[in-house]
């Protein structure tokens, strides 16, 4: 394996460069996936049928908490990548750990929120609007859940194997994924929650 030392570790081999480009393209496909889910949601957002409307179920507090948790985690993973670039394994692991904990917190709040909705009689089966809402939020939430598992696995590898071109590459790609989930959340926050509460 040829390692080019003039480049950051995560870009240092030919294979690493290919993987990063491949992942960017994959994120392109993810954008299409979420755009489609948004389109479905917007199409159905007025179809409450006999169920509650958006303004009746949405509550600002949990959504604000989720937003703050996820935005902060995006910041800490950025710090983690910075730590990785300057070669500090310990700082990198700390920041990644914080990121995953924040992600876990986000997931906890989101699950509580879903449980509240269901208790209020707003289930996925109630109306087309709620089907669209749960599917959009659920897909994002499932991505976060997968991210927690994936991030945990990477953290373990960094601990065991140190910062190699391989682990650095995985960590960097994971950070791209995490930032992407954050961006999707900003859209959900603005165009689903804020718009729905207005």
């Amino acid at each position: 394996m040829k390692i080019d030392h003039s480049l950051p570790l995560e870009y240092s081999t030919e294979e690493n460069k290919l993987k990063i480009l491949g992942f960017w393209i994959f994120l392109g496909a993810e954008i299409v996936l979420f755009s489609t889910l948004f389109a479905v949601y917007f199409t159905l957002q007025g179809n409450f049928a006999d169920g509650p409307s958006a303004s009746q179920i949405f509550e600002l507090t949990p959504v604000m908490i989720e937003t703050i948790l996820l935005l902060t985690s995006s910041f800490t993973i950025g710090l983690g990548i910075h730590a990785m670039r300057i070669g500090s394994k310990k700082a990198m692991m700390t920041f990644f750990g914080i990121t995953l904990l924040l992600g876990l917190g986000f997931l906890g709040v989101e699950i509580t929120e879903f449980v509240t909705y269901v208790h209020e009689g707003a289930t996925m089966q109630t109306s087309a609007f709620l089907s669209g809402l749960f599917t959009l939020l659920g897909t994002h939430g499932a991505h976060v859940t997968f991210g927690l598992l994936w991030g945990g696995a990477i953290l373990y590898q960094v601990k065991k194997r140190g910062l190699t071109p391989e682990t650095a590459n995985k960590s960097f790609i994971f950070s791209l994924y995490w930032h992407f989930l954050d961006v999707v959340w900003i859209f959900i926050f603005s165009f689903v929650y804020l718009k729905g509460m207005m």
């Binding site: 159905l44 179809n47 996925m124 087309a128």
Partner: peptide
């Protein structure tokens, strides 16, 4: 990815009782 979403919604409608393409409850 559009097909991925469409098929997922189809599965949800058929097997989990959602209303995306239903004839009632606001489906289209």
């Amino acid at each position: 990815p559009v097909l991925t979403v469409a098929l997922a919604l189809m599965m949800l409608d058929r097997q989990f009782g959602t209303q995306f393409f239903a004839m009632q409850n606001g489906g289209m």
